[in-house]
Amino acid sequence: MAGTVVRSSTPTESSAGFAARALQTVKRSLSRASGAGPIRFGIEGEPEAALELPREAVELLASLLGHMAAGRAVSIVPDHAELTTQQAADMLNVSRPFLVGLLDAGEIEFRKVGTHRRIRAQSLIDHQREDDRKRREAADELTTLGQDAGLT
């Protein structure tokens, strides 16, 4: 992954509680802040110090805290990061051979570095979104067929 660190974290029960409390504070700060400018946070114990964060970073923090509060594992990967096939398979929660099949079928963009495949994180995310869209369409179609047949 050429200088890019993938950071994963699975919250403990205790840290999920902390995350839930922090999420409320962050949400209040987001709702009070106007516009797209930075959001200021005070630092406890340092009355003259304040931390200014871009709104996008605070929104990302809120999303991260929401997942942690729900007890879900969270990974942070920059869009431009290149993942190994094992890292990409782990992100999709599939086996590495299954992922390689998707790559060879042209389902996900990748490049080769020597004999090794590298997948951009954004390509993986794009594939996930498209796969989710197809699943929703299939579920909607099944629901419609069930209603037409009088099964619901």
Rank of each mutant, 00 (worst) to 15 (best):
A81H: 07
A81Q: 03
E82V: 11
E82R: 12
L83Q: 06
L83C: 06
L83E: 06
L83N: 08
T84G: 12
T84V: 05
T84E: 07
T84F: 08
T84P: 02
T84S: 15
T84Q: 02
T85V: 14
T85Y: 09
Q86W: 09
Q86F: 10
Q86C: 07
Q87Y: 10
Q87T: 13
Q87K: 11
A88D: 10
A88T: 07
A88C: 07
A88P: 11
A89P: 09
A89H: 09
D90R: 08
D90W: 00
D90I: 03
D90L: 07
D90C: 02
D90K: 07
M91H: 13
M91I: 11
M91F: 14
M91A: 15
M91W: 02
L92Y: 06
L92Q: 08
L92S: 11
L92H: 04
N93A: 13
N93Q: 15
N93G: 12
V94I: 14
V94E: 00
V94A: 01
V94P: 01
V94F: 00
S95K: 09
S95L: 06
S95V: 01
S95G: 15
R96T: 15
P97G: 10
P97I: 02
F98C: 01
F98P: 00
F98I: 00
F98V: 05
L99H: 09
L99P: 12
L99A: 08
L99N: 10
V100F: 08
V100E: 15
V100C: 11
G101W: 03
G101S: 14
G101F: 06
G101E: 14
G101M: 08
L102N: 08
L102P: 06
L102T: 03
L103E: 13
D104S: 14
D104Y: 10
D104L: 13
A105W: 05
A105S: 11
G106T: 12
E107M: 10
E107A: 15
E107F: 07
E107I: 05
E107Q: 15
E107D: 15
E107P: 05
I108N: 04
I108W: 01
I108T: 11
I108Y: 03
E109R: 14
E109V: 01
E109H: 13
E109I: 03
E109A: 15
F110L: 01
F110M: 03
F110W: 09
R111G: 00
R111Y: 00
R111N: 00
R111A: 02
R111H: 01
K112H: 02
K112N: 04
K112Y: 05
K112I: 02
V113P: 00
V113N: 04
V113I: 09
G114N: 07
G114F: 03
G114W: 03
G114R: 04
G114D: 06
G114Q: 05
T115E: 05
T115Q: 08
T115A: 13
H116C: 07
R117F: 06
R118T: 03
R118Q: 06
R118N: 02
I119E: 01
I119L: 04
R120M: 09
R120T: 05
R120K: 14
R120L: 13
A121H: 15
A121I: 02
A121K: 08
A121R: 12
Q122R: 14
Q122L: 06
Q122V: 05
S123H: 12
S123I: 01
S123W: 05
S123M: 01
